[in-house]
Design a protein around this nucleic acid. Structure first.
Lengths: 225, 225
DNA sequence: TATTTATGATAGTAATACTATCTTTTAAAA
DNA sequence: TTTTAAAAGATAGTATTACTATCATAAATA
């Protein structure tokens, strides 16, 4: 059985839908590689064009600028992750088990998903760790929010918030705890690998320790250990 | 009594010490204003020079580039905050009270400190919220770390970690909890004001609610409520 | 008063972030 | 099968950014 997974993206994110052409898919594929390799600051449409073997102007037909492209791939990731979560927690009745699965999915290396040929989820996960918050830490955050560019992130936050409430209906901060889990899954990973003295995982550098920390944090807070 | 507070900064951060000249102090003062107003991406040395009434080349005599300048003001903030913490928790014996003070200091608007004439701490706090993580979320993080540019942040993290251990000597993740407090104090604030559905504080937009959330999170985790 | 040090003024360069235009190729509709 | 429309390629051009270099002048210090 060979499945193809298509994620419907917000149309304001692009000028021309990159899913629908070869060049478009190449833009996504190579921008993920380039951003992961050089970082978002050093990433330019010119380098991307050279990488693909097309011209700068060609890229501009798909994306208004590199920030929109970043928003696109990040939104894509959150949508894909929400799908992963709904898939992997399907038929799980115990919300505690569900929440633990969510934490694990957020905080451990993702496998490349064969259902999405032009997206390398594993690289994308690294981008989320290092560049994810740059999507919204800008002066245009309000404008971008009006365009609903952060909807996939918000949806994910709502999903996790609901699972938290299932675990503990009276817990007062389900959304904030959800964003704390998401952000800390990535920040603790980044710190562990780059500024280890900011964490307690410097010795082993094991993702499982980040998971253990988050589990402890979350289940202490919602009083279900 | 009129005091002046001087913070000793890492000398690799600048080419010429901005504390020692009028122009230098103006660079610090105006860059804080400009970065707060336009955001770090839109901030350029040319605009800064125009703002001050000097030339671009003049700024370059003090800072190699705008990233170093950002690192400078951020490092300055963390040093100043560590001083604030040591001052405000001095003579407090109960570590729980201490930790609560720390959380409050991190998560609520800071007052402009009269002891530092050319630094507006209140604006700087806003910069930390919106731009703080851009200091280390780069590909040069390793290089910058070798220069010890993140030492003030690490020191603060260690101080908070120690207070956590005072509260609960057997707690396993004092450093990671410290960074979680620091980062979430800022992220929850940013989300509350810009993407409120990511938090539970959207209605009132009160910093005190962020404080309450963090207190709940922290003291549940270390089992002292 | 000599001399170092800081600043000002100006110029110049490579790269970035685009926009515009025109031609060729490809693919779909008539 | 031809027509025609959409996509891609090729090329050029602009304003801004992120610097570096040079030379003159003002201020502080020895």
């Amino acid at each position: 059985m060979k499945l193809q997974l298509q994620i419907k993206m917000n149309e304001d994110l692009f000028l021309r839908n990159p899913e629908q052409t070869e060049l478009g898919k190449n833009i996504i594929k190579h921008s993920i590689q380039l951003i992961e390799k050089d970082g978002f600051e050093a990433f330019t449409f010119k380098k991307l064009a050279e990488d693909i073997g097309t011209t700068e102007a060609g890229i501009y037909r798909y994306f208004e600028n590199k920030h929109r492209l970043l928003l696109y791939i990040i939104a894509w990731y959150w949508s894909w992750l929400e799908y992963q979560i709904s898939f992997q927690t399907n038929n799980v009745t115990d919300p505690v088990v569900k929440l633990k699965k969510v934490i694990k999915l957020l905080a451990t290396t993702v496998q490349d998903d064969a259902k999405t040929s032009h997206v390398n989820e594993s690289l994308l996960h690294q981008i989320i760790i290092s560049e994810g918050s740059k999507a919204y830490l800008t002066k245009q955050v309000g404008e971008d929010n009006k365009h609903q560019f952060f909807k996939p992130y918000k949806d994910l936050c709502a999903v996790i918030g609901d699972i938290i409430l299932e675990c503990s209906p009276k817990y007062k901060y389900p959304r904030s705890l959800a964003t704390t889990i998401i952000e800390m899954a990535h920040f603790q990973n980044f710190f562990m690998n780059n500024l280890p003295s900011l964490t307690d995982f410097g010795k082993n550098k094991e993702e499982t320790e980040v998971v253990a920390f988050l589990n402890d944090l979350v289940f202490s807070s919602i009083k279900k250990v």
